[in-house]
Write a protein that binds this DNA or RNA. Structure first.
Length: 570
RNA sequence: CGGGACAUGGCUCAGCCCGGUAGAGCACUGCGUUCGGGACGCAGGGGUCGGGGGUUCAAAUCCCCCUGUCCCGACCA
């Protein structure tokens, strides 16, 4: 392509509206333009990169036996009513009426549509398993769209759905998709990790998020230095080191006593005042849930993991209780709650079971208890209820844990029969019995993958595209296109590279060299060939690698071979 | 939904406090000179100052309402 003919409106300055680096760079590189909050136009450069990512996705999905379809983005309310999500989904679901006053929505996801399709067409176990996928625009009316393509309202997503006759089959489909996802992100040239994710009410380990590692990522990840364990921070298990601790220590237990702790409400206040470590204290947090009030106990230096509490209690609503409620339950103002004498249900983190002679709130204003022991109160359940810390070891292999951040670009999880049951997607098994199809669903955010690639691969000069998803592989940059020998040589090289099938951007603009250099760096093309009379008189052209900055002088005749060598990663 | 900020030419921003009829840099057009890291000269074009209302002889500037955008939080997968 000739640069002069392409729409690549680069920006010299950072746009005021962008905060994160991928957003800034995509705007500056002329890849995207905003139409409304969270809604973007994709310009030619972005479209090229999207196409490359989508092509990789298609190849890997097809290889895994999935078949591509396109489902409607405008969906009637009927199927959403049927699945029960019309009422549950809330304002994120953009609803509207057609001319006949019938309710419709813009599809934020396609479980309903695909399940409807499959229930009509699949009748027999002989037709299963089946995996269908599409690459399509989704719309979610996010409360707060932000960070450019990272969290838009309209976005491109690959979503796949698997249909199997039983759990075993579903597991197999899941594994196939899991493998395909590894291939996809590998091929995109990204540093990523599949992490175990919270699968909520569905349970089991059948949910993984694919995270592109980046410090700017929205999700916290815990991974093991020694083995391949990796999990979402909210899912990561805290290893319970010594379950038999209590019996050994109980002999040394002292009698608890009240101490006066005026206005010492926080862990920090109390530990400073009593000159002890947070590890000697038990925090008592009162939560309000749809199943009544609950006291959650964790060690003073630990944080409650609300997701774990939610899963343990199997409740849908969980929130810290308001001041008045705490007063009601503990008979003390906030900051002095403790388990001793508490009437509500008490659940405690495993670490608490290893403590003795600890400090708790006294359920009385300005009062704490010291030398409290487990025998002094009743715990209904001990469980893993806290957020993993840097002191924890890998729950699988006892290795050291690494804390990092990532951008969620893919999510695979087993749906089970949730939708097939509510929508009646059934088949007849070999014995002629009617069964619900077992489903799985698998998403990849295409735009988010591109944004994540940029978050992970950039420098102060701009984007550094991984070769597999670069909009162009080579840019040809003539220093002064008005000099005949420069122009001829540039065109020559352009033609021979193009003939080889490489995507080449020929910067034929009559701009000063500085502008061309800056633009080439900004849009992140992996290889740059600089053509100037200076080197040409020795029969050479300059090849520069965007990623390393390495400059190599190459004989004009060898350019094609040399470019090929670098693109093949040699 | 709660809190905060912003809205002036295509972009980045000044002007607003203290009212007097709109500016800079970049970008753009033409001509000429230049050509290895965002060149130079000359000559140009382009703005309902987000929208509506009010105060005033006079509003980008002061007051009220609305809309949009961004940030933090809550929310969500």
């Amino acid at each position: 392509m000739h640069y002069s003919r392409m729409l690549i409106p680069t920006l010299k300055e950072d746009p005021a509206e962008a905060e994160v680096v991928s957003h800034k760079l995509m705007l500056r590189a002329g890849m995207i333009r905003k139409l409304a909050a969270g809604i973007y136009s994709y310009l030619p450069l972005a479209k090229r990169t999207f196409n490359k990512v989508e092509q990789i996705i298609r190849e890997e999905m097809n290889r895994a036996g999935a078949q591509e379809v396109t489902l409607p983005s405008v969906q009637p309310s009927d199927i959403w009513q049927e699945s029960g999500r019309w009422d549950i989904y809330g304002k994120e679901l953009l609803r509207f009426k057609d001319r006949n006053d019938r309710d419709f929505c813009l599809g934020p996801t396609h479980e309903e549509v695909i399940t409807d399709l499959v229930r009509r067409e699949i009748k027999s176990y002989r037709q299963l398993p089946l995996i269908l996928y599409q690459i399509q625009t989704k719309f979610r009316d996010e409360i707060r769209p932000r960070f450019g393509l990272m969290r838009g309202r309209e976005f491109t997503m690959k979503d796949a759905y698997s249909f199997d006759i039983d759990e075993g089959g579903a597991e197999e489909s899941y594994n196939q998709m899991f493998q395909a996802y590894n291939q996809i992100f590998e091929r995109c040239g990204l540093e990523f990790r599949a992490v175990e994710a919270d699968s909520g009410a569905i349970g089991g380990s059948f949910s993984h998020e694919f995270m592109v590692m980046a410090d700017s990522g929205e999700s916290a990840i815990v991974s093991c230095y020694s083995c391949n364990y990796a999990a979402n921070l909210e899912k990561a298990e805290a290893k319970h080191s010594n379950p038999n601790f209590q019996e050994k220590e109980s002999a040394l237990a002292k009698e608890f006593q009240k101490v006066h702790t005026p206005d010492r409400k926080t862990v920090e206040d109390v530990t400073c005042f009593l000159k002890v470590s947070p590890k000697d204290l038990v925090k008592t947090l009162i939560y309000e849930t749809d199943k009544g009030a609950v006291a959650v106990l964790v060690r003073g230096d630990h944080e409650v993991n609300e997701i774990k509490v939610k899963n343990l209690l199997d409740c849908s609503y969980l929130n810290l209780a308001q001041d008045e409620r705490i007063m009601e339950i503990t008979r003390a103002p906030i900051g002095f709650a403790g388990p001793v004498g508490l009437k509500t249900r008490i659940v405690a983190d495993n670490a608490v079971s290893e403590m003795s002679n600890f400090i708790t709130g006294g359920n009385e204003k300005d009062t704490h208890l010291i030398n409290v022991n487990l025998r002094d109160f009743r715990v209904d359940t001990f469980a893993d209820l806290r957020v993993v810390t840097k002191d924890d070891l890998c729950p699988r292999c006892n290795g050291k844990l690494r804390f990092s951040r990532g951008i969620e670009v893919g999510h695979v999880f087993k749906l089970g029969t949730k939708y097939s049951e509510t929508l009646g997607a059934t088949f007849l098994d070999a014995n002629g019995r009617e069964q619900s199809i077992v489903m799985g669903c698998y998403g990849i955010g295409v735009g988010r993958t591109v944004a994540a690639a940029i978050e992970q691969n950039h420098d102060e000069n701009g984007i550094i595209f991984p070769i597999p998803i670069a909009p162009f592989l080579v840019s040809i940059l003539p220093i002064n296109i008005n000099q005949k020998e420069v122009k001829d040589a540039s065109e020559d090289i352009y033609l021979s590279l193009s003939e080889r099938g490489y995507d080449v951007l020929f910067d034929d603009r009559e701009e000063s060299p500085g502008i061309k250099f800056k633009d080439a760096d900004l849009i992140g093309i992996p290889i740059r060939l600089t053509i100037s009379s200076r080197t040409l008189k020795n029969g050479m052209v300059e090849l520069k690698l965007r990623k390393t900055g390495e400059v190599i002088m190459v004989k004009k005749e060898d350019v094609v071979a040399e470019v090929g060598r670098h693109l093949n990663g040699e």
